[in-house]
Amino acid sequence: MTGSPQYHLERVRKVFGRGQVALEGFDLQVAEGERVALIGPSGAGKTTLFRMLNCTIRPTAGRLSIGGQEVAELYGRRLREMRRRIGTIYQQHNLVPRLRVVHNVLSGRLGSWSLLGSLASLARPAGLETAHRALTDVGIGEKLFSRTDELSGGQQQRVAIARVLMQDPDVILADEPVSSVDPSLAETIIKLLLAISDHTGKTLLVNLHSTDLALSYFPRVIGMKAGVKLFDTAAAQVTPELLQELYSGHVPENGAGEPSREPEPRRIAV
């Protein structure tokens, strides 16, 4: 993965069913080891961009290559291998609520485990030590054997971070990793992610609703709005006017600046 830029996007476009355009003409270059913050109003397309960057959805049009490989040409095993090298901390709780914390953390290893190995681990967790260390790194080591749905929102977010630590990817994508923790913990978590990227040379992309955090901790900041890139520059170059423009005309849809939520899937009670 050396030489070529880690991410190379050219005129990427994403349209969801019923003609919902989430991303339009998006160009992006990210070098290995770079640390980038993405900011923008709710509905700008940040989460959609990350889902393409981690290869779980495909662009409708345009070019997306990672480490010199065209993602459009990846299928099956090679696609999974690519995904394994990209770790994502999701915005909404993407943990399995019924599983114990330890299994959610260990699920970060699934890309490296065989099917039988991963099944065996459900009965008798493999790599308890490392899972415990990852949880301790995010400050909730004592929750190792708790049931995940008994944790608070912020604790669950940290479990998701621990899962990425277990995955040990080349790239970390963090989609609003601090949306449900208090401000001081938010700073701690951002610092933790930066430290990991520092020590291991991992590329780090973070979506943030807090412009303060983005501007004070990240050398490069990208502003996006309504599916297009508004600016992509050094943090020092981001002026109040630019921010004004980024968030102007933006009427909060679901409460002030709240991240938008996709509707929960329908559940049936039996």
């Binding site: 290869c55 459900l122 329908r266």
Partner: peptide, 29 residues
Amino acid sequence: ESVNTRPLEAIQSTGAGRLQIFFYGWFPQ
């Protein structure tokens, strides 16, 4: 059909295969 797919996508994003997604994300739900 009513399974929440978000945890499944998160597991998929770690490079897990279909059966792994099934046993870790689907079955417990």
